[in-house]
Design a protein around this nucleic acid. Structure first.
Lengths: 213, 213
DNA sequence: TAGAAGTCGTGATTATTTTCACAAATCCAC
DNA sequence: GTGGATTTGTGAAAATAATCACGACTTCTA
């Protein structure tokens, strides 16, 4: 709750900045200007400076930003030192992609367990993460507060209700279903079909330059 | 180019509206109010009315919207009758998820071909879509103008350059890399790791209600 | 040490998007 | 028909976000 004065648009860009700063440090760079960063992350440099300024004066005029300092600062801001445990529901192709993705490497999140209805998958592991039967959801979930939903749309609402009943507070919903949750649960929708359709619509109806999201 | 007076935020919601209207029709509903639709798609009803109003007066006061009429209208607006061909680059788990997803069912897009560097995959099909070797890109791409990028980040820029050279105008980029393209190429980034991190950040720092994206 | 070049932080402006709130039109029950 | 209940479409206001543009300060070069 500490910095809810920070605009949402800014907050969404923080993980992006963090990752690129990390890259810069790995490359051995010690300083970076908003202009350089702008070219790397494709965000206007004034926007970057404004974003950073919500956290105070992090840079130096005529010099830019010290990579290590900035990185340390964002590490704290993004709670990079505190691991958030995540459960994945639905081990299809999309779910498997998540399990194989080593989030923990650059992230403060770790998928601790996965659930699926397919008996053939239950009991196995992918990327070191155990797969339980979906009926074990309530037993195994423990204190996990974040879930990734990669199941068929038809089951989305039913599973969501169970997740919410068990105390889940954040859901990354990859199903096309628009799920209903109480006010204190946050849902982010990522709808792959819509992203594709929307891209096609923009291509056909919008001028051919700038504003690439 | 016809309706570029339509706000981008509205344009992004159109495919969502379309899909839910389609569902309503399948359920046999003939009319719908902005309030009902609002509950289904989780978008404020005033926003829905405003969105629709950019296309003229589509509804009737005291009645709502005629589902069939609205659907027909959006079908034309979203060019649902005109198929957009898409190429998928990178047949890993995420790529496979796309190939198995039958976009064409409710969409105006169809993945026509896929590319991968893995000889074991080349020559096979997934979901009826042929997989070619990535070195055949220039030969096989033909007139396809949209690509989905589901490859490792390290290869993103190199492949992007080849796609652009071959005339691709829209890229749905699932790699963490921020690719560089000419002004007339549109890129939409979907960064799974960032989506997860961003959700976690919002959970920790933002008040517990409303504004679920 | 002096001057030129670089870069931040931010006030002000502009652009975009959402929301309020209500007149006007329509529907529907009786 | 009549009158109360609905629901749109939209002007106006509010909220949010992006961008401009420049003073202030730092760094760098010689």
């Amino acid at each position: 709750m500490d910095q809810n004065k920070i605009p949402q648009a800014t907050a969404k860009r923080l993980p992006l900045y963090y990752r690129f700063l990390n890259n810069l440090q790995l490359q051995g760079k010690t300083r970076v200007s908003s202009k350089e960063l702008s070219e790397a992350v494709k965000v206007d440099s004034a926007t970057i400076r404004r974003d950073f300024s919500y956290f105070g004066a992090l840079g130096k005029k005529g010099y830019g930003y010290n990579v290590e300092y900035l990185l340390g600062f964002f590490r704290k801001t993004l709670d990079q030192d505190e691991l958030t445990e995540v459960a994945l529901i639905g081990v299809g192709n999309l779910g498997t992609a998540f399990l194989n993705y080593n989030f923990t490497k650059n992230n403060n999140t770790k998928i601790m367990m996965a659930f699926d209805a397919d008996e053939k998958k239950v009991g196995t592991e992918i990327g070191g993460i155990p797969i339980y039967h979906i009926e074990e959801l309530e037993d195994k979930l423990g204190n996990v507060k974040v879930a990734i939903l990669t199941i068929p749309a038809a089951e989305a609402e039913r599973i969501t209700d169970r997740l919410v009943a068990k105390g889940i507070k954040g859901i990354l919903n990859f199903t096309p279903a628009r799920i209903t949750v109480p006010d204190d649960v946050r849902v982010h929708h990522i709808d792959l079909a819509i992203e594709l359709q929307s891209l096609v619509y923009f291509l056909k109806h919008y001028p051919l330059e700038s504003d690439k999201q």
